[in-house]
Simulated assay, not measured.
Amino acid sequence: MLFFSKRNVPFKEIIPDGYIDIHSHLIPGIDDGVKTVYQSAYILEQFEKLGIKKVITTPHVIKDVWPNSSLTITNGLKELKNVLKPLEINKINIQASAEYMLDTLFFERVINKDILPLHKNFILVEMSTFSPPINLNEMLFEIKLAGYTPILAHPERYSYYQNDIKKFEELKNSGFRFQLNLLSLSGYYGDKVKTLAKKLLDLGYIDFTGSDIHNYHQLEVLKKGIEHKTAKKVALIMQNNIAFA
C-alpha cells in the first residue's frame, strides 16, 4: 500500500492483499442494488482489477419491502455465477449472505436458524435509519442464543445516535461488532455521517469494513478514495476482513 501527500488516496492503494468485501448489493433485482447481472458483472470486474479477493454480497432482508429468503438469495447467486463464467470474471470469488433488518421477520428467522451467515457464526444486521428497534435487547439475546455474532452494518449512518457516543459503547459492550461503510469516509452520505465515521474509527470501535455498493455511481465515488490521514487508519482495519476467507 502506498500513501502519497495529497488530499485523497485512491481506493486501489488502500486495499490490503487478500481483502474481502463483506457488504454489497450485487444480486440483481431482489433489492435496491444492481438491476441486471451485467451491471453486477461490471462492478465485480472492476473489483477484480482493484485487487479485491472475494465478495460476500448481502441483499437486504426486510419485512414487507424485500422479504428475501435464503432460497431466493442462493438462486440469485447461482444465476449471477452462470453469467460470470463465460465473461471470464474468475479471479474474484463471490459468495452470498444477507443484510438482515432487525425486524419481526428477522426475529422469526433467527429463532428458526433460517439465516445465511457471512462466515462461520457472523451475521450482518442493520437497524432502521429512523429509529432503533424497541426490542433490541430481546433480539440480541435471541441472536446469541442461536449461536450467532451480530455485525452491525454502517453504525455511522444511524443519525439518532450521532449525539450519543456512549450508545455506541453500549452496543459494543452488548456484543455487536461494527462494520464501517467505506463510502461514508468519502462523504457520500454527507458531512455528518463522515464526521461520525471518523470519530468511531478514532475511538477504535470499528471492527470491519464494507463497500455497501449498489450501483455504478457508488463505484466511481469509491475509486476516488479517502483523505490521506483517514486512509492510513482505515487500511489497518480493512486487514481484519481477511478473516472472512
Rank of each mutant, 00 (worst) to 15 (best):
E79C: 04
D17N: 04
A245T: 14
N163E: 12
Y42I: 01
T104I: 01
G147A: 05
Q162N: 15
N240H: 11
H154E: 06
S184L: 06
H214K: 13
P10R: 05
I22K: 03
M238K: 00
S70K: 14
D103F: 07
E48I: 04
L185M: 14
N90K: 14
S5M: 05
T129K: 11
T230R: 01
L84W: 11
S97A: 13
D114G: 06
G175A: 04
V193W: 05
S159Q: 14
S159N: 15
G76S: 04
F107R: 14
N121T: 11
L102S: 05
F141S: 14
Y161C: 02
E45L: 13
L84Q: 09
N93C: 06
I62Y: 04
K199R: 13
I30P: 00
V34I: 06
K232S: 08
F141Y: 15
N163T: 09
G33K: 00
A243S: 13
L26F: 05
G204K: 01
N173S: 14
E142I: 12
A41H: 06
E142Y: 14
M238C: 04
P117R: 10
N90M: 11
L152F: 05
N90G: 13
K63H: 11
I111E: 15
K54M: 08
E45A: 13
N240T: 08
T209K: 03
D21F: 01
